[in-house]
Amino acid sequence: MKALISKHWHLLLIGFVALIMGGFVLFYFQGSASSFPASQPKQAQEEPDKSQYEMVTVGVKGDGFYPKNIEVKAGVPTKINFKKMTSFTCIDEVQSLKIGMDVFLDHENNYFTVKDLKPGVYEYNCGMYMYYGTITVK
């Protein structure tokens, strides 16, 4: 047995590394459906009253926000829906210090209300500062 292991140690090592990598790939690509549920499940957000708000949807994909720039009207309350288009993305949070945005993204609707912004361009980003988008207020 010892001679067999010493003769084929490289195959055992490759098998062990493949097993570890396979476990990592399964863990990484499970999306946000974690095997460790939150202590309190988050309720799905209800669709807001469209007559009271301007509605804008920003798609969240694996490589960023689509569209990267959205335009809203100054003085008009706006709800921005950051909608995840895939679970294969590292974007779990959208934030902007200038407008007080800090939104954790679920698979469902993720609304952020923009009120009383002055005309200008406001930048937002993912929680890891890898992907950016802008809100242009006119």
Rank of each mutant, 00 (worst) to 15 (best):
M1R: 13
K2F: 05
A3I: 00
A3N: 08
H8T: 00
H10G: 02
L11I: 07
L12N: 01
L13G: 07
L13F: 09
L13S: 11
I14Y: 01
V17G: 00
M21E: 08
G22N: 08
G22E: 03
F27K: 12
Y28Q: 13
Y28N: 12
F29L: 11
G31I: 08
S32I: 11
S34R: 10
F36L: 10
P41R: 06
Q43G: 07
A44Q: 05
A44G: 07
A44V: 10
Q45A: 10
E46M: 07
P48M: 03
P48F: 02
P48L: 01
K50M: 14
K50C: 14
K50V: 13
K50E: 14
S51N: 04
S51T: 07
Y53C: 01
E54Q: 15
M55C: 02
T57R: 00
V58M: 08
V58C: 05
V60F: 05
Y66I: 10
K68E: 11
I70N: 09
E71Q: 14
V72L: 04
A74R: 13
V76M: 12
V76E: 09
K79Y: 14
N81P: 09
F82S: 03
F82K: 03
K83F: 08
K84P: 06
S87T: 10
T89E: 11
T89W: 12
I91D: 02
I91T: 05
E93S: 12
E93D: 12
V94G: 06
I99M: 04
G100T: 12
G100Q: 12
M101W: 01
M101D: 04
M101N: 01
V103D: 01
V103S: 02
H107C: 13
E108G: 12
N109A: 09
Y111A: 04
Y111D: 05
F112W: 06
V114L: 12
V114N: 08
L117P: 02
K118Q: 00
E123Q: 06
E123I: 02
N125E: 12
C126D: 03
Y132M: 01
G133N: 11
K138D: 13
